[in-house]
Design a protein around this nucleic acid. Structure first.
Lengths: 209, 209, 209, 209
DNA sequence: TGATAACCGAGACGGTACGTCCTGTCTTGAG
DNA sequence: CTCAAGACAGGACGTACCGTCTCGGTTATCA
């Protein structure tokens, strides 16, 4: 999205950009991030190498954009008919139920084999490369986490969450265990686990009657 | 520890192994994992490349062993005088206090700039490479997590923790948020944060009097 | 001249080709063929290894082309003013004298220390590698030998050589002994030797009056 | 035969030496001299590498000895019953016939595919490596050439060869063309060629009646 | 409505590192 | 005490990509 040395993109070829996204995602899915090369992406996309180097600073940046594009298109598709977490966490009045719903969806997403390779690749890259990590967090993670903050604040106003609880930290209590299992592959990531996490976490955060 | 194609070595050179560990850690610390090369490690260690390829299947495996060796030696040093988490989580009777102590130590460890580069590198590598990840978890993470399980079970027996709480999941509620902040660099990782996590997590896991 | 996997390139860099020729010849001269490496040539020429591998199939092929280029440039220089064997063997009417002149020149050429190393290297390589040998013979040797055939045929027409003598074999009688001494270093290769060879060989090939 | 750093050969294992000869010749025959390695010879001979390095200074030296041993054994076999050139050139009184006989045998030997690979390898090596070349000439070539000198001197005494002809040079006139064709593969090496060479060469060396 | 840029595909270039192979030396352990 | 087995430091091999750099050949403004 942000070219590293802006060549004023009005003349930029959409066809090439699309082809590069597709090639990048396909190759990462097929061969893994490590074995995916810029030359390989260019060849597969039927594009000159320079066309990649002109618009992106690194392989990771290409993949990041390809991934954002994928997510955007997925959201657009699922979006109109109300949709999932992208458009806010539902508020049925029952905080635990709402959270379980969303976390179960997150579990499913993480377990989706199609998304796995690129997500892992980007996360790993971001862990080592602070700049990329910041972009990853800013563009993909933070917007999602903000939805939790919103929902948790609503719960606080509704008296379903301790007024002194920090929503940001509360959210981490919910999200981090899932991420932990997924990233480190310690134990299987299931709906039951998501439910338990919600129960345990909320246990300490709901007002004691 | 497990050579990829075991040359069963009794004749293996200890001097070389040591030099390789040192060179690998030094280079990763100085230039980052990406820019560290096997050739570079060999050159710095004063060792033929083949000596590395003979005993390790990948750069990541070298670093892993170097890291394990580092940890082992650190533990041996700190070990005798009872020491930290390596030798069990203290049990003073106050679960929250004990956990805060240990988690604060973990925070310090994660913030230690000396350990940061290799730990991030290994973690990232493990996220993408399942085999390496399994080794990382089995050799480094699981032993530590087991200590939490032990302590939490003791707490259950002492009636300081709900009898129906799963210690494994409880532990993840404590550990995962720290890891999350550290890996993704979302927000600073402080002692205060560790304390809050303990408070929030235990809130839902201690018996309601 | 014939790239092993023709990248048909008009974009080939002349500067690199030249630098590679120079480096190859220099290194072979300085350190001998064996100790000359493709890496060394690339480094000395200030060229990437791939640029060598792209255009030549082997070290020997590089040297061959470098040598041909050298010979071509030498010929071009010496050429205009009529010159040596490159432009035909002189025909003064005295066959023996003409041959002695040319063979003495060949002796001098073979004894030239500058040409010695690469010529020996190429010859030796060609002895073992039939493909390269064929190229060597076709590009360097045969053209020279053809000049002898021409001169000997002229001598036959002039009645200075038996009409039933095969010029091709006659030529070998003249050339082979020189090559033999030079290649195998059995005895010194002198002008006197060249003269004697001409005398002995022609003795059996001139018409008996 | 001449160890480079004489380890007092009394303890030397004959079995190993033999096995090394066999392995060396076999490998050179199968894969060519270039692709034959000392490691390969050792492995094939079931011998430690050190056992080779102890007794020979180079791959070429191993092959040379193996080759000499082969020639010696071949001679021993063919020897007793009078035999070929090894035991002198026959003297039937007809110089031309005698020479043709021997040169035809040489042609056959050079065309023998079994001997070809190692002979070419050794010759090529000797062309580039002066020390080895000298050994090759001294041990293998000179003894053979001496036989020609003997026969030619006898012919001179019998008045079948000009008294002023240098036998050494005469011999080169006979031998060199064969070697030339064989080494450089310019044209096929046949009995007819050998005969012609004898005819042409002797033509100039026999007394004119 | 050309001229004239920019982008495009292609791919050669100088490099770096890869992982393999072999060299020649040194060490170990079984016989 | 010898010798096969093979680890060791070193270094070249030939390959794969890196990121930069031309090269013509389209487009797609703007003069």
């Amino acid at each position: 999205m942000a070219p590293h040395k802006a060549p004023v993109s009005s003349r930029r070829s959409d066809r090439s950009r699309r082809a590069i996204y597709d090639a990048a995602l396909a190759l990462v899915g097929e061969s893994g991030y490590r074995r995916t090369t810029i030359e390989g992406i260019a060849a597969r996309a039927g594009v000159g190498k320079q066309t990649i180097y002109r618009w992106w600073p690194s392989k990771a940046a290409v993949l990041m954009e390809a991934f954002l594009d994928l997510a955007a298109r997925a959201a657009e598709e699922a979006g109109p008919q109300a949709g999932g977490a992208e458009y806010g966490i539902p508020d049925t009045g029952d905080l635990a139920a709402d959270l379980k719903l969303v976390l179960r969806a997150t579990v499913d997403e993480l377990n989706d084999p199609l998304m796995e390779a690129p997500t892992r690749a980007l996360t790993a890259e971001g862990i080592v490369d602070a700049k990329l990590g910041a972009e990853f967090v800013g563009k993909l993670l933070d917007p999602q986490l903000a939805l939790y903050v919103t929902r948790l604040r609503a719960a606080q106003e509704a008296g379903q969450l301790r007024p002194d609880a920090d929503p940001r930290i509360a959210l981490e209590l919910l999200i981090a265990p899932l991420t932990h299992r997924w990233l480190l592959r310690t134990l299987p990531l299931t709906h039951a686990y998501a439910d338990t996490i919600v129960d345990y976490a909320l246990g300490g955060l709901t007002p004691r009657s």
